[in-house]
């Protein structure tokens, strides 16, 4: 079966339209987004909707366009065409100042944590508060220490540097930094990659706890199915730059989509071949 026919079949079977129609409010709405790097067409008309207060996980293999999609929504990359709306506001042509203001709604946990290695842990966590919002250092430190505790680290960690922490601890600090300013939308880029299964589950629990605690909308990308099942309300699958399936996490095992079935069961045989995964 070719990718094209598989995609067509997927769109016939997809419950995506129903999901979109039932949404209470669209926090993030992405429509027909294209993005290419030279001849490499990464996003090819990606459509995605994240309802307010829900957690959507986008699954997909390496090189299918997950990270590029996330960076387009964040404004770190400019899409070639298409529409990306946050709270109904089109974001494609925002000025630098408006973009900076919009960023205040966001928090992001990066794949490698992306902590500033020249700053102490508490300065990392408080960075958005102090530098982005002009909060006094003393007050920001108190909030930072509280967030550091909330992700299960001891308060003494606050005065260490990122290089002195393990990968799992760095991820926790990254999570504390992402939620420090109580964002409305939190992005998670492969939150469990590179962690042992137990630490991955701890991070998953923390993500659920923090997202629910803040009442935030969450958009995650991952290829770790255990993580996806734990943190998702809705799941979407991206393949060759398009969302080919979208449904609730309960529907995942009965999607009727051969691509999704192959991916969630991690089978080598199926419509997705290793040659097709760029």
């Amino acid at each position: 079966m070719t990718a094209q026919s598989g995609t067509a079949q997927a769109s016939e079977n997809t419950p995506q339209d129903n999901v979109v129609a039932d949404l209470p409010t669209e926090k993030i709405a992405m429509k027909g987004v294209y993005k290419a790097f030279g001849n490499n067409h990464v996003l090819q008309g990606a459509d995605l909707v994240v309802p307010k207060g829900k957690s959507l996980v986008v699954i997909g293999g390496s090189g299918t366009g997950k990270s590029v999609m996330l960076k387009c929504i964040l404004g770190l990359l400019h899409p070639d065409s298409g529409s990306i709306k946050i709270d109904g506001q089109e974001t494609a042509d925002l000025s630098t100042q408006d973009r900076d203001d919009l960023m205040r709604k966001f928090g992001m946990l990066f794949q490698g944590a992306a902590l500033f290695d020249s700053l102490k842990i508490w300065e990392n966590v408080a960075f958005g508060l102090v530098q982005g919002r002009g909060m006094k250092k003393k007050q920001a430190r108190e909030i930072a220490v509280e967030k550091i505790r909330a992700v299960g680290l001891r308060a003494e960690v606050a005065d260490l540097y990122p290089a002195e922490l393990s990968g799992g601890m760095q991820k926790r600090v990254g999570l504390a930094r992402a939620v420090a300013a109580d964002p409305e939308i939190i992005f998670f880029d492969e939150p469990t990659t590179g962690l042992d299964p137990i630490m991955a589950d701890v991070i998953n629990d923390l993500i659920v706890e923090q997202v629910k605690g803040l009442g935030a909308t969450a958009l995650s990308i991952t290829h770790d199915m255990a993580s996806a099942r734990k943190i998702a309300d809705h799941v979407a699958m991206i393949y060759e730059g398009r969302i080919i399936w979208h449904g609730s996490v309960e529907e995942l095992d009965n999607s009727g989509n051969p691509y999704v079935d192959q991916f969630i069961h991690g089978r080598a045989d199926g419509p997705i071949t290793s040659g097709q995964v760029r």
Binding site: L74, L76, M103, F106, F110, A114, G132
Partner: peptide, 12 residues
């Protein structure tokens, strides 16, 4: 190491 992207997401 995506620290520059992190700066942007922290409104800096």
């Amino acid at each position: 190491t995506e620290q520059i992207d992190a700066l942007r997401t922290l409104s800096v």
